[in-house]
């Protein structure tokens, strides 16, 4: 199943199951969504539940918050995370805080879907990853869907949660054909052990999962070790249990993220590991992250600015030599 089809299935089934579920955003209706996620839904559910909005992110989220307060379960689509900055006040000051400000009397059952990350030559203003910003806001739940199975289950869970969820997708994933399976009692807050291993834990999320999985066989062969790969899935809350179980076993951790290294989400994860698992570590943690530059337009420079399978292998090789692996 295509990644975008899994998202579509989740929205479609949720809308069929509950009349209070509505979607709104730029081009989500007649056009079927910029990445075809809402394809077919306009014809099926009509303009009252699949709402095309003007190009005005602040009002998309503001309207959605109003709908949520009034009893709907809106799914707001922001075309890319880069545009979500325009909706920041509504997201951070209102969606995240309303439940607290009302003393728990009102909730915001709102899901804001937005793709991010480096696609292909969309240049600096359309290539950012803002998971680090949203993960730093109390009151928000932040989920990052790297695969069809998680995307489907987690999006459904997000729609029916009574708190605002920032649902992060990645632009390169939409047309990818992926394995899909339905899982009962799916826990969207649990990290996934993608591959078990003994000597090294690699933490990652979103599209970097695939770069890591390409690099791992090379690393395993070259260093003669076995690598455990964990997809974080839920960024806020973070599943420290799965991370901790793995590091207690492997004693070494590498985090791979596409976002800029400085202040990136990986910094938070590594800080927590240092706090909670310091005496388990047999090597300094390693972050493999994007360069601290606005993402360049030139394809070669664009690739040079983010981790790739080759760079992941090279950095782990160098790090392992310096740290007795």
């Amino acid at each position: 199943m295509l990644y975008r089809e899994a998202l579509n299935k989740a929205i479609d089934e949720s809308m069929a199951a509950d009349k209070s579920v509505v979607i709104l955003g730029e081009d989500v209706g007649r056009y079927g969504g910029s990445y075809r996620v809402s394809e077919g839904l306009f014809a099926k559910y009509g303009p009252k539940r699949v709402i095309d909005t003007p190009i005005a992110e602040l009002s998309i989220v503001g309207n959605a918050i109003g709908m949520a307060i009034a009893g709907l379960r809106p799914i707001a689509e922001i075309m890319t995370v880069n545009f979500s900055l325009l909706a920041m006040d509504q997201i951070v000051n209102h969606a995240a805080k309303f439940r607290y400000m009302s003393g728990g009397k009102m909730t915001i059952p709102l899901t804001i879907r937005m793709p991010g990350g480096v696609s292909r030559q969309l240049a600096a203003q359309h290539s950012e990853s803002y998971e680090t910003m949203y993960s730093a806001v109390p009151g928000l739940i932040v989920l990052a869907a790297s695969n069809a199975t998680y995307a489907y289950h987690a999006l459904k869970a997000a729609i029916f949660l009574n708190d605002p969820v920032i649902f992060l997708e990645h632009e390169l994933l939409y047309p990818m054909e992926m394995e899909f399976k339905e899982i009962e009692n799916f826990d969207p807050f649990k990290a996934e052990v993608v591959k078990e291993g003994e000597d090294l834990t690699i933490l990652t999320y979103l599209k970097m999962r695939y770069d890591v999985l390409q690099a791992v066989p090379v690393i395993e062969k070259e260093l003669g070790i076995s690598v455990e790969v964990i997809d974080l899935n839920s960024l806020r809350p973070l599943d420290m249990k799965t991370i901790s179980d793995s590091i207690k076993k492997t004693k070494r951790v590498v985090l791979v993220e596409e976002d800029h290294k400085t202040g990136g989400y990986g910094a938070e994860v590594i800080a927590r590991i240092s706090e909670q698992l310091f005496y388990e570590l047999d090597a300094p943690p390693l972050r493999i992250a994007g360069e601290d530059v606005p993402i360049p337009y030139n394809r070669k420079l664009e690739l040079a600015s983010i981790p790739t399978p080759d760079k992941i292998v090279a950095q782990i090789r160098e790090w392992s030599q310096a740290n007795g692996l």
């Binding site: 004693k251 310091f278 005496y279 388990e280 570590l281 047999d282 090597a283 740290n323 007795g324």
Partner: peptide, 15 residues
């Protein structure tokens, strides 16, 4: 605290 054990070693090694 374990950090006061001398020598240069990883935290896990010191533990």
């Amino acid at each position: 605290p374990i950090t006061s054990i001398g020598g240069k070693a990883s935290p896990a090694a010191k533990k």
